[in-house]
Design a protein around this nucleic acid. Structure first.
Length: 271
DNA sequence: CTCCAGGTCCTAT
DNA sequence: ATAGGACATGGA
């Protein structure tokens, strides 16, 4: 099925480092697994073609790719401003979307992400899915594809340190286990945090062992739909130091600071 | 081999 | 409140 779209570039999205299971499987084709479903997406000149049904696109993927949000308007607004670096960043990554990933998967994968580079995170997450996730079969582009879901909350919560050995989690295995147990027991209610304000969501998340300001903000941005989150990692720190002379006030982009952050991250990391 | 990665915790001031 | 060291593992 073909879909006409603006400000959507699957390569940019895949390379933007916000999700860890998207992979390139052809010249301009990428696969992804989310919410237990598998999809293949091919970039075209004026949009994309997708392997899923129209119904799945409407019910799941359109929401996942944040299609209800007008990125063109954000880009216009930035181009009308006076921030030269940000204008270059927007031009470079104009096809980026902020994904609405599963809250639990986002929390766990960003706990894993700390002190790892992106290729290492991907390897680690894939191993986790192959070891503890359910195996499924999808048909896409006239082929059958085997894939693994992200582990369920119950499965991960009832796991042990021993079971996690060999997945490359390192010292993060305790963080992962404890976070999964908190979600499983209801001590941390992620669904509720999608409805609270951003600040309360972040401070709730930071109660979790192994979740600091950065992971909390990434979880809020990529998993809870809090577009105003502005995660500061090593790359954004470099942008602030090297481009903005040590101070950047993201509050003027209040309602969409996370999108601004992602343009900056993608441009500075890939240029 | 060494260096560093989408940080956080713990401890000492 | 704020600063410095420890931390497992693997990619480059």
């Amino acid at each position: 099925m073909k879909i006409k779209l603006e400000n959507f570039d699957i390569k940019q999205i895949a390379d933007s480092g916000q999700c860890f299971r998207m992979k390139q499987i052809g010249e301009s084709t990428y696969s992804n697994v989310a919410y237990g479903e598998y999809i293949e997406i091919t970039q075209e000149k004026d949009g994309i073609s997708v392997s899923c049904s129209e119904e799945d696109w409407e019910n799941l993927w359109a929401d996942y790719f944040h299609l209800d949000y007008d990125y063109g308007k954000i880009i216009e607004q930035i181009n009308a401003g006076d921030d030269a670096f940000l204008k270059k960043a927007v031009d470079y990554g104009s096809g980026i979307r902020i994904l609405r990933q599963e809250p639990f998967e986002t929390l766990i994968t960003y706990i894993i992400s700390q002190r790892k580079n992106i290729p290492a995170i991907k390897t680690c997450v894939e191993k986790l899915c192959e070891t503890l996730g359910n195996k499924k079969i999808a048909s896409a582009n006239n082929r059958e594809v085997e894939y693994y879901e992200f582990p369920t909350i119950e499965r991960l919560a009832s796991s042990t340190k021993n079971a996690l050995d060999g997945l490359g989690l390192g010292y993060r295995n305790e963080y992962v286990l404890s976070a999964a147990k908190w979600v499983d027991s209801g001590r941390l209610n992620l669904r509720r945090l999608t409805e609270t304000d951003h600040q309360s969501a972040v401070s709730e998340l930071k109660q979790v062992y192994g979740v600091g300001d950065k992971v909390a903000n990434c979880t809020a941005l990529f998993g809870l739909g809090h577009i105003e989150a502005f995660p500061i990692d090593v790359w954004i720190e470099r942008v602030i130091d090297e481009v903005y002379g040590g101070y950047f006030d993201h509050s003027k982009y209040k309602q969409f600071a996370g999108i601004v952050q992602q343009y900056m991250f993608y441009y500075y990391r890939n240029k």
